[in-house]
Every structure is written in C-alpha cells, then in structure tokens.
C-alpha cells in the first residue's frame, strides 16, 4: 500500500499566504506571453512557417532588445540562430490554437483576428503600458523582417 509520510502532511495556507500566491500567479509574465503579445500586433494574418526565418527574426530582435528576450538563448553554431525555448513556445502557442498551421503543406502560419483579440484582452494586459508600446514595435519589426525575407 502507498505510504504517505504523516510528518509531511500539508499544513495549509493562511489568507495572507494565499493572497500572495494568487497575486504572483496572476502577474507572472512568461516568454510565451511575450511572443504571443508580439504576434498579436502583426497587421497580416499569415507569415511563412519557416523555422529559419522565424528564429532568425527573433534573434535579430534580441540583439536590439537583449533585456526583453533574455530568456531566449540562441545557438549560433548552426545554419541559422536557433532557440530551443522559442521552438517550444511556438509549439505551445499552436497547442493553444493561438497560431495555426495549414495541413498538409505547412508553408504558412496563421495568427487570426480572434487569436489576436484573445491575446490582446487576456495576455497583453500583463505588461505595463510602457511595455505595450515596446511590444507593438517589436511586432511591427518582426513582421517587416519576416516578410522581407520571403
């Protein structure tokens, strides 16, 4: 039979601890939030689904904005700058239906209007007003870069 250590039973949270945890959970901003928010400012709905182009564009953004993208570590040994975290973020955004790919060609990535609205109402508010403007700039810059390399 499974043994539970009675000495380690959870002691519970008081209201102050609970409030602190809830506050932290609701305010934490993650790398996923940054990429999603940036994509919500694209004025086009479709971008090329090309790892090389996407990773390279975010890498260039990181070079200009190292603090914003500090979590994204890029391997530069390969044919293009590659970030394992960015790959996982894109997978997760797809998993959440915020970005979509078109079967069976997988040539384009769609960030639809509904996704953009969702991100701007649910995720973007996590960033302060000052950062929102910056993220909009990042989105515009990302779009210019990725469409220019088409």
């Amino acid at each position: 039979m499974y043994k539970m250590n009675k000495d380690l039973l959870f002691s519970g949270l008081n209201s102050k601890e609970k409030k602190a945890i809830t506050g932290k959970l609701k305010s934490t901003v993650t790398p996923d939030d940054l990429i999603a928010s940036m994509l919500s400012f694209l004025t086009v709905d479709r971008i090329p689904l090309n790892s090389n182009k996407i990773h390279s564009a975010v890498f260039r953004l990181k070079q200009k904005n190292p603090e914003m993208f500090k979590d994204f570590v890029f391997a530069t040994k390969d044919y293009y700058p590659y970030s394992a975290l960015l790959e996982r973020v894109l997978f997760r955004l797809q998993n959440a239906d915020l970005i979509n790919t078109i079967n069976p060609d997988f040539k384009e990535c769609i960030i639809g209007k509904r996704s953009k609205r969702y991100i701007q109402s649910h995720i973007l508010p996590l960033f302060g007003d000052e950062k929102k403007g910056k993220i909009k700039e990042l989105g515009e810059s990302f779009q210019r870069d990725i469409l220019a390399s088409r």
């Binding site: 959970l25 934490t28 996982r88 959440a96 239906d97």
Partner: peptide, 21 residues
Amino acid sequence: NKKNFQALNKLMENPDRIAML
C-alpha cells in the same frame, strides 16, 4: 476553450509557479 491552454502553457518550465499552484 483551447485558447485557455495558453494559461497552462505559462506553467511550463516554471517549477516555482507550479509549486505555488
């Protein structure tokens, strides 16, 4: 709502956040 999956995504790679939850 699959879009709410994004909230779940935020937990990934964040053991401190998971511990709080």
